[in-house]
Amino acid sequence: MSIQFYSYISFPGNAAEAMSYYAEIFGGTAEIMKYGDNPMEGMPFTPPADAVAHAQLEGPVRLAGGDSMAENPDPLDIHNYSFLLYFDSVEEAQEMIEKFTSTGGKVEMPFDLAPWGDHYGQIVDKFGVLWALNVPAQQG
């Protein structure tokens, strides 16, 4: 059996911008398909042509997403999930924190030595997505 795992985010109408942003932050390529790019017959709703039907980031971080088709989509809620990024060094994690904060993200939990021995912190990016950053103790 061969399995690939992608986290999927239903964005409240800004999936194209978010997925392009993640390609810049993490590296890799974002493939973005809008409903108008390939009209689909027989859908149970009529989506806006510029809404993202599916987007996929291929690179060090693999992520998928699209625009929510809810009439009033809920904003992303950082209290229900986080994405955990592991780094080989404290310096690499701090560089990622700088990328996020210099582009509109904010520190949710300062990156520091945690009680369990790892370096750990949390960032909320400009789209409201929570990213936890971790460097294992033996690698700090």
Rank of each mutant, 00 (worst) to 15 (best):
95 E>F: 11
63 L>R: 04
73 P>S: 05
100 F>V: 06
98 E>K: 15
102 S>R: 11
68 S>T: 10
103 T>R: 09
64 A>D: 10
85 L>N: 01
97 I>D: 01
83 F>K: 03
65 G>R: 13
102 S>H: 11
73 P>R: 09
64 A>E: 04
70 A>P: 01
100 F>S: 04
79 H>G: 14
67 D>T: 10
81 Y>A: 15
70 A>L: 13
71 E>F: 08
76 L>F: 04
63 L>M: 14
90 V>Q: 09
68 S>Q: 01
90 V>W: 02
76 L>A: 01
74 D>P: 00
62 R>N: 12
91 E>H: 09
82 S>G: 04
84 L>D: 06
62 R>K: 13
96 M>E: 11
91 E>L: 05
83 F>W: 08
76 L>V: 09
99 K>E: 09
65 G>A: 14
62 R>G: 06
63 L>P: 05
95 E>W: 10
94 Q>A: 12
91 E>S: 12
69 M>V: 12
74 D>T: 08
62 R>H: 07
73 P>W: 07
85 L>T: 04
101 T>W: 07
73 P>T: 02
98 E>L: 13
85 L>F: 06
75 P>Y: 03
78 I>H: 03
69 M>F: 12
74 D>Y: 01
98 E>Y: 10
92 E>H: 02
81 Y>T: 15
100 F>E: 01
94 Q>T: 13
86 Y>P: 00
92 E>M: 00
65 G>V: 13
98 E>T: 15
97 I>T: 05
101 T>H: 10
65 G>P: 12
95 E>I: 12
87 F>A: 00
